[in-house]
Amino acid sequence: MAGRTLSRDPFSVIVTGVGGQGNVTASRLIASMLVAKGYVVTVGETFGASQRGGSVMSHVRISACHTYSPQVPKCRADVVVSLEPTETIRVLASYGHPETRCVVNDRPVYPVRVIAGEVEYPGIEEIDRTIAGLCRAHVMIGATSEALRLGNPVLQNVIMIGALQATGLVPFTRADFEGLVSAEMAPATAELNLEAFDAGVRLAEQAMGGKAW
């Protein structure tokens, strides 16, 4: 049964970022793969302010048996997938615990007050240290730069899904992803998404340096 591959039930993943980065799509792709594998999945999303510069979170609750609420209770996130570095910290403060693992994109999206020069955005090394101090393990990759190399920044979310798969924390495989995109996308788009997924796997494996989580 599917449940045996979950280290906790419910297993909770939070996908976070800033409006427009594609994290809602990312969480739905992850959830769809898991539903196809027989899990009962709930995805909670925040809309509305999301596309207008706000922080955006999707909560993915995975269980072998029950529909869980679309909001992860405090300090119960097992994995945080973050498309924006400082958003990782914000999510950990509310939902993290000492055993949480994080997969982080290193590309900042500056808040308006940073753009305006009113407050400073922390250096990436400082962010990396802060995240390290708040979780069991984390990996930081250049998903946006890789997406730009592949020709479109929107692919950053799929690169992050690939990186998540490489950590082995959530029970889905490359074949699951391939099945999903080939069913839902035009062949050329599916091919590009698969390329992005593989890039994410590669980047995460390099960053993890062969160590298993």
Partner: peptide, 17 residues
């Protein structure tokens, strides 16, 4: 520690796209 860390993450005020 987690609460203290949030002070390093600048807040996001809403804005037009």
């Amino acid at each position: 520690r987690a609460l203290a860390a949030t002070f390093t993450a600048p807040g996001r005020e809403l804005t037009f796209c």
